[in-house]
Design a protein around this nucleic acid. Sequence first.
DNA 1: TGAAAATTGTGGAAATTCCAACAATTGCAT
DNA 2: ATGCAATTGTTGGAATTTCCACAATTTTCA
Lengths: 254, 254
Amino acid sequence: MRQEKRERHTKILTALSGASSVRVAELARQFGVSTETIRRDFDELTRGGQLSRTYGGAVRTLDSRHHGEAERQSILLAERQRIAKATVDEVADARILLIGCGATAVQVARQVAARLKDITVVTHSFAVAAAVGVNHLVEVMMIPGLYHPAKASTTGGHAIVFLQSLYADYVILGASGVTQDGPGDSLPEIAAVNTAMMSRAARCVIAADQSKFNLSSSTRYADWPQVSTFVTDAAPPAELQKTLESNRVKLLVA
Amino acid sequence: MRQEKRERHTKILTALSGASSVRVAELARQFGVSTETIRRDFDELTRGGQLSRTYGGAVRTLDSRHHGEAERQSILLAERQRIAKATVDEVADARILLIGCGATAVQVARQVAARLKDITVVTHSFAVAAAVGVNHLVEVMMIPGLYHPAKASTTGGHAIVFLQSLYADYVILGASGVTQDGPGDSLPEIAAVNTAMMSRAARCVIAADQSKFNLSSSTRYADWPQVSTFVTDAAPPAELQKTLESNRVKLLVA
DNA sequence: TGAAAATTGTGGAAATTCCAACAATTGCAT
DNA sequence: ATGCAATTGTTGGAATTTCCACAATTTTCA
């Protein structure tokens, strides 16, 4: 049965929520499958961003709930905040704002909550909704869809259909990789929603820190001609910068 | 020098806060010491409870504070869990399940994630979505709408319109008050969504602990004839029990 | 200073994991 | 039914880790 693989996957995740790490050999014995199968399961779940491998096993990827993540992100927190401020400056005249998901998007959401009012924010990210929600002068609209655990956001057909029926002044999106071809996300489901968002907004702002430069291990969700502004925290590589210019993308280095 | 060991220990912990796992060989190379030394460092830090070993490396021990937080959410946790278990028993044959918001609903969501599969859960609560989302065999559909900060859930016209277009086998709702007139919620926006949910499900299960009995400071969102089952943790007052009987509401005391 | 204690390095055998290629099996569609 | 694609098992060799005993070095303190 094809179902068995998915069952194993959830069992792995379940085991991982009860222990800080699991081992290939242990799970293979426990599930009655070969170690290679577990190894392959790990590969898939790694691609999905749900766990990360160790030698001989795997550990849960730290989601936002975990303390360590906050610490890890705090390394880039200052950069993200600078990026977020510049981004919000750029869209300060918006009345309807689409915001994607990701750590940078959350910082943008915080800035929006702190500085804007009389505005409607539409998002598919739980974290963004919660961050903007603290300001009662900002209306937050949640996009429907299938819940995506790795990113705590909604995806899929419902999300895309919902987006078709609305208009926004700006869309602000993060990226897990930015190449000369365009910005991308590691998860195809998220990339699809991003694409749909872009089609509904008059202008598009991409916000990503320098660590994303030339990271292509991701699904591209837009081409540069569709992007109005790219906000980052350091000068991009020459070729990328050239591509931006030739596509008339406004570059903001915060 | 004795200092070097402690330095290494802090460096190990630092490295561990920047990555989800570290490897013996890697650290040995990085610190310029033998792998045995790193191994012994790991042993000590493990005894101190600061990390836990994996084959070939180590990971940070999960912060028990985080787990405790959700548990500490209420003294009524045990009761809520009993109620949740009985509730899930009641809807175990469902293929599409609507779940409302609130602390009890979250416990139900946990039970669903732990025990059911091949099912679709539709909800407007962030917490419920996150709780069910850990099980990848359960599809979680998020309802759109205006974000309601107090309950971390969606409300309003978009939510209600969205609900009109779907069908569910069961709807499970909490309540902030349960009177002879019916279950109610303290927030009108939530009550409206609850009402809409009820109209789309074949059967309705209300789950509420005894502290909600005869609490009428709320907006009633349903009449008893619409309710199939009422799950609670103690025998309700005589009059309420009588009302349930006369409306053929199945009473479950967990 | 000198000896005990703590710390670290070394070396080799045993156990474990990884990887890649290939075979067997299962589910699904034409 | 037949063929294709996806999933899983198997195998063997290379690479890595572990474990243990013992030696070398440094620290402590009497």
